[in-house]
Nucleic acid binder design. Sequence first.
DNA 1: AAGTAACCGAGACGGTACGTCCGGTCTTTGC
DNA 2: GCAAAGACCGGACGTACCGTCTCGGTTACTT
Lengths: 200, 200, 200, 200
Amino acid sequence: MTSLNAVAPAPRRRESSRLAILDAALALCREEGYARLSIEGIAARAGVGKATIYRWWPSKGAVLLEALDREAAAVTAFPDTGDLVADMRTTFNDVIRFHASPDTGPAFAALIAEAQQDPALGPLLLEHFFMPRRAPIVQRLRQAQRAGQLPETLDVEAVLEVIFGALFHRLLLRSGPLDAAYANFVVDTVFAGTSAVQST
Amino acid sequence: MTSLNAVAPAPRRRESSRLAILDAALALCREEGYARLSIEGIAARAGVGKATIYRWWPSKGAVLLEALDREAAAVTAFPDTGDLVADMRTTFNDVIRFHASPDTGPAFAALIAEAQQDPALGPLLLEHFFMPRRAPIVQRLRQAQRAGQLPETLDVEAVLEVIFGALFHRLLLRSGPLDAAYANFVVDTVFAGTSAVQST
Amino acid sequence: MTSLNAVAPAPRRRESSRLAILDAALALCREEGYARLSIEGIAARAGVGKATIYRWWPSKGAVLLEALDREAAAVTAFPDTGDLVADMRTTFNDVIRFHASPDTGPAFAALIAEAQQDPALGPLLLEHFFMPRRAPIVQRLRQAQRAGQLPETLDVEAVLEVIFGALFHRLLLRSGPLDAAYANFVVDTVFAGTSAVQST
Amino acid sequence: MTSLNAVAPAPRRRESSRLAILDAALALCREEGYARLSIEGIAARAGVGKATIYRWWPSKGAVLLEALDREAAAVTAFPDTGDLVADMRTTFNDVIRFHASPDTGPAFAALIAEAQQDPALGPLLLEHFFMPRRAPIVQRLRQAQRAGQLPETLDVEAVLEVIFGALFHRLLLRSGPLDAAYANFVVDTVFAGTSAVQST
DNA sequence: AAGTAACCGAGACGGTACGTCCGGTCTTTGC
DNA sequence: GCAAAGACCGGACGTACCGTCTCGGTTACTT
């Protein structure tokens, strides 16, 4: 079915180059920091021409996003024990470990930062990184609404913005430790509040 | 008498240059965006040598921070009507107007972004921008604790991180409108939750 | 066959840029003087990136040397009428015209000057500019030695140093006119002396 | 007597600063080379404000010229044994020692170089350095003319230009050793030639 | 099996901005 | 009242990357 209308003859992309680029991007970001990351450097490290990167990615932010996405792919095991707040604690303990890891946290923060200057990266980040990962959490909250554990009128997406935003505060400003205690505090506070609040 | 303690001979800094630099930085940031902001450009616009900027500021982020600080100086009128949640709604409606303004919001977001790559800027931002502005809010919350309106054991600084973080989410990811409705939702949710939660 | 020994893939240098740079260097040197000559200015005038100059030349002196070399390429018609002193007069009248020309003289003087501060330029000047141009004169003098017109033991290279040095004196110190009379005086004096002197 | 008509209050120049500046200039030139010599550096080394240098000297070349002049003041013992060529050999052996010395040679070469780019320095060099030092040699040659040892019509100044120029060649281009053998060769060649040549 | 078209590595190119250094001027402060 | 100290504007330095481009050489479809 897919090949029926295939006008363009499928770009004969070299997979080994793609992987080398993603690996080089992550490694350089870890070792030198995002500020010192450059397309020039990625190309050299990956043993690849610069044009190969420009051919397939619009910006260095997009390269790192794809690299980080690959890295974070296996995290999303999402629990459903029936206890809503307990499940949320579990979930956001996972999330905060991702934020706190020296491998992924700084790169992730750098992506949010880069999105402020690269207009294309913000939507990319939202659609290809955040939304797919939040979808199961949203499902869980909607189900809780149907079960009467949460008010029907509650804007669950906004609730997630509050929780993730609270984590961003410590990730981006280093205003305190990114640990389980903080994650639990945020989850408890917000979900304690939700029963009394109706919507945006 | 004067020469007794006169260790450093007071740097004979030219105030007119300082102001020209701050104005140029803000104007260029507004007109071109932070990404296109450069020390070279600020110097040219301000009619100033680059060295004059490097002499007094460690980075372009620090320049913009000082410029933004001057701009945001007069915002901090803080109400105390006795109704805690109403006062908080008022306060964070002010805050969200700062975030939503095209003059200050993008520059502020850019500063948070820049802090991810400039290790010196994060603490600077925290100490010279956030903490002085949050101090009266913290005072108000402490007073509410003493009045029995909030649990004694509540970590009020963490509460503020949750609220400000929630605003950051929409500021940085543009995941939704930065309006009064969102500010009120966040305030209501968090303060409804605080009575049931003890501490970090 | 071609690929067997093809180790280095021949740097695909853009000839048009090379020529534009040489032309710009000479023109700027003429118009503004060597002191005001800068790599920045050459690049701007030639419509070329600075890196392109730094990639191919070690210094602005080397650029000007190559430019001057190209300019002076066609001068070297060297006569042999059998009359040694007459031929030398002809030759050094040519040389002194090169020194006296406002197009080439000041640039040439500037190169000698620059060689005092750029250790690499001195040898470059000697090997790529002076020696190739003096070679035919040395040949002529050697032949005169074989013909018995000059003492066999005479150090002809040293003789040329005396003559060229005498011209340098007026070129560099402007101690008198750089004209045919001076050239003839120098040639006559030195060659009148050579028959009585043996070597260094 | 001098102070009687002193309308302008005699610039109360601080001699200690003047000497410190000259010493610093010579020392830095020796240690770092003329290329790295800067007014900034001289001022710092001498413990003097930059303005103090600009007040009393027009350029760094002029500073070094004065410094070098002080250094070379005591060289000028000039012999008159009656044997013209022998005296000239003695004289130019002195000169070439000055050129060959690592303390004075490079600084002297640098001054000649600087004169190519600083229009004021050339005449300064000629009048305050060369001419006073050559005057006794010219006297000696004029006396030799009166004594019939040299042709009356000979341009003795031009003769000196040839000899000094020949030394410059090796000083500036390092085309061979600056030793007594070369000095003697130059003197012998030129003076052997002078008896047969009339004038410029 | 040859033709061919895209991808690939390499890296030169015109540019922009970096952060540093120095030139020459001007201002403040102290001796 | 000069001189030290040094801030100031300006401008060039040499470097690092940007994003584009051209060049040979490979690779994998097409014919």
